[in-house]
Write a protein that binds this DNA or RNA. Structure first.
Length: 273
DNA sequence: CATCAGGCGAGAC
DNA sequence: GTCTCGCCTGAT
């Protein structure tokens, strides 16, 4: 068990923020408890106040989870930069101050956010669960929990389009099929993407079938940690139209727009108005 | 029952 | 380049 303290970390907010589709509430009443699958591992996280416990070895924390939860970024500092006269953004940031921009797996984010288009979170999660159960490797965690890792590009490329329809993917089935094959045949360079700047990464991702501006931004933000990416989905567009009729100050927040997007999105879905 | 979800591709112009 | 339209499926 690895124990931490952090005033800007809420496992419940991270879970409900919608950036990770493989994070589930465990139902522990004393503490916020979440089980998640990422990078081939299963992890349980418990939290009471600002005290966080991760059920993993120190080695796994140092090599996987510290980066995954973006523990080296000071979110209080980002929040302190918000224009104090922007009361809506101040409220949104206060409401979601425990959200962190995870550093998730690139391939998993590509598929997950292709699935997310014109879709509800409930169905998105079911689609991903079915893909993992049917095409991912089954494993057992040290504590005995059985889980499925996210399927590899090769495993998904071997699925027929009709099999993908059976995973409830609907018209996205063809996108998944095309993208899995494109990645398998190295039509885009996944290694190069990791080190690319935001503009180059976006351009490369847009080559994939089923990836448009919004999905590319989600991948840039949640996998490549491009904090300037500001995904504009239907909810955010409503917020921007209602609260920022004269335009959102993207320039002021150019290097942390993605964090603010998450605060606005989370506040809109879970908070007031 | 209609509408709409964390949009995108294809075709028209 | 910009605009429109159709799309799987199920929650509400």
């Amino acid at each position: 068990m690895v124990r931490l303290k952090n005033d800007n970390f809420s496992i419940a907010q991270i879970c409900r923020s919608g950036q990770c589709f493989r994070m589930d509430i465990l139902g522990n009443k004393r503490a916020e408890a979440i089980g998640l699958v990422a990078f081939g591992k299963y992890l349980e996280v418990f939290q009471e106040g600002n005290e966080i416990s991760l059920d993993c070895t120190q080695e796994d924390y140092d090599h996987i989870w510290k980066s995954y939860f973006d523990m080296d970024t000071d979110y209080a500092k980002i929040i302190s930069r918000i224009d104090a006269t922007d009361s809506y953004l101040m409220s949104a940031a206060a409401f979601g101050s425990g959200i962190r921009i995870l550093r998730q797996d690139l391939w998993e984010m590509i598929i997950s956010f292709i699935i997310s288009q014109q879709n509800h979170i409930k169905r998105i999660r079911r689609c991903i669960r079915l893909l993992c159960e049917r095409y991912g490797e089954k494993r057992v965690a040290p504590n005995g929990v059985e889980y499925y890792v996210f399927p590899t590009p090769k495993a998904l490329s071997q699925a027929r389009i009709e099999d993908l329809y059976a995973c409830n993917l609907g018209y996205r089935s063809r996108y998944i099929y095309e993208t899995a094959n494109a990645v398998l045949h190295r039509e885009i360079n996944m290694e190069k993407l990791a080190g690319a700047c935001y503009a180059d990464a976006s351009r490369e991702l847009l080559k994939l079938c089923g990836v448009g501006a919004k999905v590319a931004d989600c991948i840039c933000l949640f996998a490549l940690h491009k904090m300037e990416a500001f995904p504009k989905d239907t909810h955010i567009n409503k917020v921007l139209a209602a609260r920022y009729p004269n335009g959102f100050p993207f320039d002021r927040y150019h290097d942390c727009g993605g964090v603010l997007q998450q605060y606005l999105f989370f506040y809109h879905l879970n908070g007031m108005s």
